[in-house]
Nucleic acid binder design. Structure first.
Lengths: 220, 220
DNA sequence: ATGATAATAAAACGAACGTTCAATTAATTC
DNA sequence: GAATTAATTGAACGTTCGTTTTATTATCAT
């Protein structure tokens, strides 16, 4: 056989990307073989090379797409001109929503950086730094305006991002907590962490607690 | 050649473990070859199999040792019978100190779990859960005693652990911040996050700020 | 000194890897 | 409907992988 009936380049490429994200997230980049990926897509291994010249090209494409999606999502969610607390709340909500929705993709982008060449690693890190800088700016603005008390802007930004991104390690949709409950709790923790001074009914974050009391969290 | 002069089983095994931790942390478990490891140790690949029957056995041994070290460190640092805030402070200090000191080992234990067989994964997760349970207990005690205000004990414990462990991603010894400065800032953030009510001069964590002001944090 | 044992080297195994190439068929264009 | 282009197959390439086997030498106990 050769070309199969109904074959379509765009559909195949999309299928490869989706299967690759899932496989890499589950097995790891090094552990996933091109033949495994091809089987998942329903195609021969050689066909993959029509769309991605090398395995690393495939990985890089996935990561770049993930980072672009993250930055685009924040650009769309960012409040036009608001006080630091509102902007911080928007950042937290967007970050958690995006990372829960794109769990596998996030896993890949966070865990497989070392499989990138130097140049490509730099490109991804550049995107990541730009995204993180948005948070540092918010923290600095809030700190200078006196509505946050933050010891060290850079360190606090890193701590918050690690904390929020960590959601994907244990969160499973449809289990004990809903996305909105998780987001509310993380928002509350974030606001306390940065020492936000409440200044209105809608910003009383520390009272936004889910209904149920927890017994045990499910690890991993 | 065969046995070399001065060769010693115990020393070789220790050298293998140390080299393996560094190599796996840098390249990843799948990407590190047994021949690479052997070269690093200064030995032939076949010699590794005298000490570890398979590559996965080696990985498991490293991870189990790491988790045992973490639990032992906490057993040694745990305050005998103290109030929740003191216990929480001890937990945070121990966690950060241990993870900074054993950065590479932590990297391996956190990133390579998927390369373990089902049974061995369960063993490591069991150890991890036991360690995390200590933190949940502290949070629950503090919450019930009214000295912490925590929405969800399990979720807060996970958030704190992700935040603290994240230190190893960006912290480099000898750079802008010292270990004690980092620890002080994380302690301060932790106490605010759990809504700890200060009840004495030594527990005024939110004032424990490092001297220098940050300009930019170094990513990765 | 000698025999036992511990530690390693050297070479080889089959399997799996990423990738390439030529052939073949489906879809599209003219 | 013929020519062209797009999509895929099947087979093969050289390399590297984890691991095993066998032989050889250093060390240690007697």
């Amino acid at each position: 056989m050769a070309r199969t009936t109904g074959s379509d380049g765009e559909k195949t490429e999309a299928a490869i990307r989706e299967a690759a994200v899932n496989l890499i997230a589950r097995l790891g980049y090094e552990a996933m073989s091109m033949r495994q990926l091809a089987t998942e897509v329903g195609v021969q291994a050689a066909a993959l090379y029509r769309y991605f010249p090398t395995k690393e090209d495939l990985l890089f494409t996935l990561m770049r797409g993930h980072m672009e999606g993250l930055i685009d999502a924040w650009d769309a969610a960012r409040p036009a001109a608001a006080d630091p607390a509102t902007r911080l709340a928007a950042y937290v909500e967007n970050h958690i929503a995006f990372h829960i929705k794109r769990r596998h993709s996030t896993h890949v982008s966070n865990m497989e950086l070392r499989s990138l060449s130097h140049d490509r690693l730099s490109q991804i890190l550049k995107q990541r730094t730009a995204y993180e800088k948005e948070l540092r700016t918010i923290l600095r603005d809030g700190s200078e305006a006196g509505v946050f008390s933050v010891d060290d802007t850079g360190l606090t930004a890193m701590a918050l991002i690690q904390m929020m991104t960590g959601v994907i390690v244990w969160f499973r949709p449809g289990e004990r907590l809903s996305i909105s409950e998780v987001t509310a709790t993380y928002l509350s923790m974030t606001m306390r962490l940065v020492g936000a001074k409440a200044h209105g009914a809608t910003t009383s974050y520390s009272a936004a607690r889910p209904l149920g009391r927890s017994k045990e969290a499910v690890a991993l």
